[in-house]
Computed example of a mutant assay.
Amino acid sequence: MKKHLHYAFCILTLLIVATGCKKNRDTETIDIGKDAFVSATSLANLTKLQLQAAATLKGFSAYAALVQYDVDFYQITYKTTYKGNKINASGLLCIPKGMTSSPALLSAQHGTMFSDADAPSNFPNSFTGFELFASTGFITVIPDFVGYGVSKDIVHPYYDMQTSALAVTDMLQAVKYYLKDKNIAFSNKLFLVGYSEGGYVTMAAQKEIETNTTDNLTLTAAAEGAGGYDVTGMLAKVATVTTYPDPSFFALFMQAYNTTYNYNRPLTDFFTQPAATNIPSLLDGSKNSDQINAALPATLPALFNPTFYAALSNPTAETAFKAQVAANSFPNWYPVSPTRLYHGTADQNVYFETSQSTFNKFKAAGSSQLTLIPIPNGTHETSVTPMMVDALQWFKGF
Rank of each mutant, 00 (worst) to 15 (best):
P266H: 08
P331S: 14
N24A: 15
Q356N: 08
D290K: 13
A108V: 04
A104H: 09
N377C: 00
F321Q: 14
L190E: 14
A256E: 10
T136S: 14
T81S: 13
G98F: 02
N288F: 08
L303K: 07
P157E: 09
F130I: 01
A18S: 15
Y82F: 10
A174Q: 06
T80Q: 07
T240S: 13
F127M: 06
T100L: 04
L235H: 09
F123R: 01
S289I: 14
N305L: 00
F362A: 12
N293A: 11
V350C: 10
S289P: 01
A8C: 15
A223D: 03
A298H: 15
A167K: 00
R265H: 03
N278M: 02
Y69V: 02
K22M: 11
H380R: 03
S115D: 12
F362E: 13
G233W: 05
D284P: 06
A53P: 00
F127H: 02
L372A: 12
N212Y: 02
H110R: 01
Y195K: 04
S135F: 05
F9G: 15
P266R: 04
D284M: 04
A54P: 02
A326M: 09
P96N: 09
I154N: 00
K34L: 06
D153N: 14
A327W: 01
K180C: 09
F127K: 00
V201A: 09
D290W: 03
K207H: 11
H6E: 14
S187T: 06
